[in-house]
Computed example of a mutant assay.
Amino acid sequence: MRDFVQSMDDALPGRFEITKEGIVHDLRDPGGRHALTTAHIRKRLEQVTSEEIVAHTGEPDVEDESEGIMRRPDIMVIAEADMEGEGSFDPRTLIATVEIVSRSNPDNDWVTKMRDYPLMGIPVYAVFDPRTGTGAVFTDIHPTPAGPRYATRKDFVYGEDVTIGDWTISTDGLPLYEKGTGEPAR
Results as ranks from 00 to 15, higher is better:
Ile164Thr: 07
Thr168His: 04
Asp140Ile: 14
Arg149Tyr: 14
Leu119Ala: 13
Phe138Ser: 11
Arg149Pro: 03
Phe128Ile: 08
Thr152Met: 11
Ala126His: 04
Gly165Tyr: 05
Met114Gly: 08
Phe156Leu: 12
Ile169Asn: 03
Arg149Ala: 08
Gly147Asp: 15
Ile164Asp: 01
Lys113Asn: 06
Ser170Val: 15
Val162Met: 02
Phe138Asn: 15
Ile169Gly: 02
Tyr117Ala: 04
Tyr117Phe: 08
Tyr125Val: 04
Val137Arg: 00
Gly147Cys: 09
Ile122Gln: 00
Pro118Ile: 00
Arg115Lys: 08
Trp167His: 08
Val162Lys: 01
Phe138Gln: 10
Phe156Met: 14
Leu119His: 14
Val157His: 09
Val162Tyr: 01
Thr139His: 07
Ile169Asp: 00
Pro145Ala: 15
Ile122Arg: 01
Ala136Tyr: 05
Asp129Gln: 03
Arg115Leu: 15
Ile141Pro: 04
Asp116Met: 01
Gly159Thr: 06
Tyr158Phe: 12
Asp116Gln: 03
Phe138Asp: 04
Gly135Glu: 00
Met114Ala: 15
Thr139Arg: 13
Asp129Val: 13
Val162Gln: 00
Val127Glu: 02
Ile141Leu: 05
Asp116Gly: 05
Tyr150Trp: 12
Asp166His: 10
Pro118Tyr: 05
Asp161Ser: 11
Tyr150Pro: 05
Thr168Gln: 04
Ser170Arg: 08
Val157Phe: 14
Ala151His: 10
Pro143Gln: 09
Phe128Gln: 00
Pro145Lys: 11
Glu160Thr: 09
Ala136Pro: 15
Pro148Tyr: 02
Val124Ile: 15
Ala151Thr: 09
Lys154Ile: 10
Ala146Tyr: 15
Arg153Val: 11
Gly133Cys: 14
Thr139Pro: 06
Tyr158Ala: 09
Arg131Cys: 14
Pro123Lys: 03
Lys154Trp: 10
Val137Lys: 00
Ile169Leu: 08
Met120Leu: 07
Phe138Glu: 11
Asp116Ile: 01
His142Gly: 09
Thr163Gly: 04
Leu119Glu: 08
Thr132His: 10
Pro143Asp: 14
Thr168Val: 05
Ala136Gln: 09
Val127Trp: 00
Ala136Val: 10
Gly121Ala: 03
Asp161Ile: 06
Val162Thr: 08
Asp155Met: 14
Ala151Ile: 07
Asp129Arg: 02
Gly147Tyr: 13
Lys154Asn: 13
Arg115Cys: 12
Gly121Arg: 05
Trp167Cys: 02
Ser170Glu: 12
Pro130Glu: 05
Val157Ala: 14
Asp129Gly: 12
Pro145Gly: 13
Ile122Leu: 06
Phe156Pro: 07
Thr152His: 13
Glu160Pro: 03
Tyr117Asn: 10
Ser170Trp: 08
Thr134Trp: 14
Gly147Arg: 11
Asp116Phe: 00
Pro118Met: 02
Tyr158Trp: 09
Arg131Asn: 12
Val162Pro: 02
Thr132Gln: 11
Ala146Ile: 15
Arg153Thr: 11
Val124Trp: 00
Thr132Asp: 12
Tyr158Met: 08
Pro118Ser: 08
Gly159His: 11
Gly121Leu: 02
Gly121Val: 02
Phe138Ala: 14
Lys154Ala: 12
Phe128Leu: 06
Met114Asp: 10
Phe128Pro: 01
Asp129Ala: 15
Gly121Ile: 02
His142Leu: 10
Val124Ala: 00
Thr163Cys: 06
Phe128Lys: 00
